[in-house]
Write a protein that binds this DNA or RNA. Structure first.
Length: 491
RNA sequence: UCCUUCUUAGCUCAGUUGGUUAGAGCACAUGACUGUUAAUCAUGGGGUCCUUGGUUCAAGCCCAAGAGAGGGAGCCA
């Protein structure tokens, strides 16, 4: 204990976080806990209050003996109320915990009317919790997810820092949609009604704040490449926006993306990094969030019991995570993958909804087959046909494929998409023209290939998809504090 | 955006071929209980059956439109 003092017979209490307290051996220490009431159990002579302050999944038990607290005060201690408890940390007489607080006094910070407070000590559906996004961080499940999310974010910075990468802050507002990665959110200060028009009746963006059309970024990659071609190894980690009308368990309109970009890395180096990086992140979570993962694992097991036998997962959450950290990812080319699909029973029996042939973009069902049925481990697919991949990917000598790579995980599909970048000016210019990108809009990008061009590679990791995998949750809206999806931006 | 399922108490749900006063569990309130573990036991309160319109003697139930949500697909991370 850091501060315990007796002043004229009064105990001075020192506030500690519950995570810290639960690691102590009790020794009649004066202590203060502040947090939110999870449950209160009354009996004639004693009341038990379970308090959580979010520092850990575990609660601390405060024990109120009859007469030590005015009954009117104890009545205000209801599920959801915020209180401070002052008392002595003592060994617990009960079974469920090693230490508990013998309460001397209680301060009420915030009431929670039990008739109105929506979070009751019972199971709630995830759909219902989404409707009360302002309160759901107070639940066990979401606090566990948010702590894991934090740990993974911290691990990302740790990994890159330890490997000589620099954190590059790429812009959120961009003036080009060079990647053509779908619909963008427009950024403007022009009035929505009667904006200034050009002579031919279109909105005159010369009058706008930036003097041109601007949008929220869909990727920091192009700017990331500029950084890599100066600092050798950089990464970006920030919010990304897609205005696509996607309503799935794997898409958000606002999500966080990790994008490393490395000079002098070829495709194989890129794959090695992607594999080592994801394994590190998962291992970090296993090492640092054991309590939270154990809680989510138990939650998942309870949920699995409700399902039919054939739909139940063979592995528990921690087994699934260790399976990734302990296995080598299967690497194969797109062409090899197509061959496997063509020879699969599923294809021969016509079980795929979409046809399989060289040149198609693989559908979810195809990816799932490869990852979950055929290899049963994470898969890295490389060398896709150039027609189905972005313009900036390095063309292979065969003239047909590009040095792309997608990392596919069980359950969530594509978690990483990356490539070696085209570093040949002429080839890149030709590709931009073929795809229909205006040269003037990305002159600065093209110029990097004219001045000191270098072989380089990079990839994008969807952060929420990683959190989805590590927490074992099934809907991406449940792994970000305040999800943004079509028609939803309440909190 | 397409396909599909759903919307009944604070929450999770049941509700028979359309028929009297719409039910359960949990939660909540009150009481009991000498240490509980989302305690237990007893009692009690709690409803715009998503909205609008229609069919019918009669609609939670049938029909139409709309709104919202879930799952799948596409797009992708």
């Amino acid at each position: 204990m850091r501060v315990i003092a007796h002043l004229k017979g009064l105990l001075i209490y020192y506030r500690m976080q519950i995570k810290e307290i639960l690691g102590l051996t009790a020794a009649q220490q004066a202590i203060t806990v502040k947090g939110w009431v999870r449950t209160k159990r009354n009996s004639a002579a004693v009341a038990f209050i379970a308090i959580n302050d979010g520092s850990t999944i575990n609660n601390i038990q405060a024990v109120v003996n009859e007469g030590s607290i005015p009954e009117e005060t104890l009545k205000l201690v209801t599920t959801g109320a915020c209180i401070a408890v002052h008392g002595l940390l003592i060994p617990s007489q009960g079974q469920g915990q090693s230490v508990e607080i013998q309460v001397n006094s209680i301060e009420i910070y915030g009431l929670a009317d039990p008739e109105k407070y929506p979070l009751q000590p019972k199971k709630h559906s995830l759909e219902f919790l989404r409707e009360i996004g302002h309160l759901r961080p107070r639940t066990n499940t979401f606090s566990a997810i948010l702590r894991i999310r934090h740990a993974l974010a911290f691990a990302i910075n740790t990994y890159f820092n330890d490997h000589g990468f620099f954190y590059l802050h790429t812009p959120i507002i961009t003036g080009s949609d060079a990647e053509g990665a779908g619909e963008m959110f427009r950024v403007t200060t022009l009035p929505a009604i009667n904006p200034p028009l050009t002579e031919d009746g279109k909105v005159d963006y010369k009058e706008d704040f930036f003097g041109k059309e601007t949008n929220l970024t869909v990727s920091g990659q192009l700017e990331g490449e500029l950084g890599a071609l100066a600092l050798s190894k950089i990464y970006t980690f920030g919010p990304t926006f897609r205005a696509e009308n996607s309503n799935t368990t794997r898409h958000l309109a606002e999500f966080w993306m990790v994008e490393p970009e490395m000079a002098f890395f070829e495709l194989t180096d890129n794959m090695n990094l992607a594999e080592d990086f994801t394994k590190f992140l998962i291992k970090y979570a296993l090492d640092h969030c054991a309590d939270d993962i154990a809680f989510l694992e138990k939650r998942l097991l309870d949920e699995e019991k409700m399902k039919k036998k054939e739909e139940q997962s063979e592995l528990t959450l921690s087994e699934k995570l260790k399976f990734v950290t302990e296995n080598t990812f299967k690497r194969l080319t797109y062409t090899e993958a197509i061959d496997i699909l063509l020879q699969s029973k599923a294809h021969k029996q016509g079980k795929f909804n979409y046809p399989v042939a060289w040149g198609i973009d693989l559908q979810s069902e195809h990816e799932r087959y490869l990852v979950e049925k055929h290899f049963k481990k994470p898969v890295i697919l490389t060398h896709y046909p150039k027609e189905i991949k972005a313009f900036y990917m390095k063309q292979e000598v065969d003239g047909k494929t590009v040095r792309a790579m997608d990392v596919l995980f069980p359950g969530i599909g594509e978690i990483i998409g990356g490539s070696q970048r085209e570093d040949d000016y002429e080839k890149l210019l030709q590709r931009t023209k073929e795809v229909g990108i205006e040269e003037e809009s990305i002159w600065w990008y093209l110029q990097t290939r004219q001045f000191g061009s270098a072989p380089h590679s990079g990839f994008g990791l969807g952060f929420e998809r990683l959190v989805l995998f590590v927490t074992g949750m099934s809907n991406i809206r449940d792994v970000i504090p305040f999800p943004r999806t079509p028609k939803t931006a309440e909190f």
